[in-house]
Amino acid sequence: MAVDSTMIRITPAQLRWRRFKESVGLIFASPTAVLGLVIVLIWVFIAAFAPYLTHYTPYEQDYKNINKGPSAQHILGTDHLGRDVWARVAFGARTILLLAPISVGVAFLLGMVLGLPAGYFGGWVDELVMRILDSIMAFPTILLYMIIISAVGASPVNVVIAIAIGGAPGIARLIRALTLDIRTREYVAAARLRGDRPVQIMFREILPNCRGPLIVDLLLRIGYAAFYIGTLGFLGLGLPPPTPDWGGMVQEGHKFMTTNVWPVLSATVAIVTLVVGLNLFADGLREETMRYQ
């Protein structure tokens, strides 16, 4: 057998680094993904350094300046309570960039716990899980959130819970579908033939091989989570005031739009750019991974 001479003695660390470079290269191969990533990173930056980017806290009220347009003092103007719009946008970025990934993380855990066994064992386990998931998915997402939030009240934790419950069925279905496919692969049979237990197989053999589609899906879902956190805020079911929250800003400013569009405009532009950025990133990545395979 001819030995490939280029593969002389490479340490595991070098190999890992090479693989890491490959995955990063995947992102940079797609202009769409790069554009999305840049937009998202800008928001991450704003969220991280919010206190340094503005002189105001999102709560302090300037009674002399109420519902004013942009000025040297307030670059995006003030809202109906005289609060600085830019400060609220910047701090609002923190809220959404924190809650969205957390709720997707929780949804992922839930989805994994449901989807892996459903796909791996099949039979009645699958039937039961699928009926429950189907039922949750039958809810219009917004409606589900409304019901949950109106029952348990609006708070950051409850928003996370609601969005996690709403997102888990989709993730569970995806994991189930991937599991159904992967469990027929021969390496799963090989694992059984060395005596692996179902749990080991699910987490060691199946889950790692779901990661490609799963990462893309989770990224998309962070976008959706941001979408819904904004929407809940807009509907008055999001974070209780005076928390800086983009959706809430639109909701409050909505009534004053004819006199001052700035609070509404800023918050709307913020949410749209963030969600579109996340979507672009996920989309670019998906196309790239598909090409890669």
Binding site: G247, V272, V276, N279
Partner: peptide
């Protein structure tokens, strides 16, 4: 992508 990703209220 932009229309599908923008929340309805936006």
């Amino acid at each position: 992508l932009v229309t599908a990703a923008s929340p309805d209220f936006a």
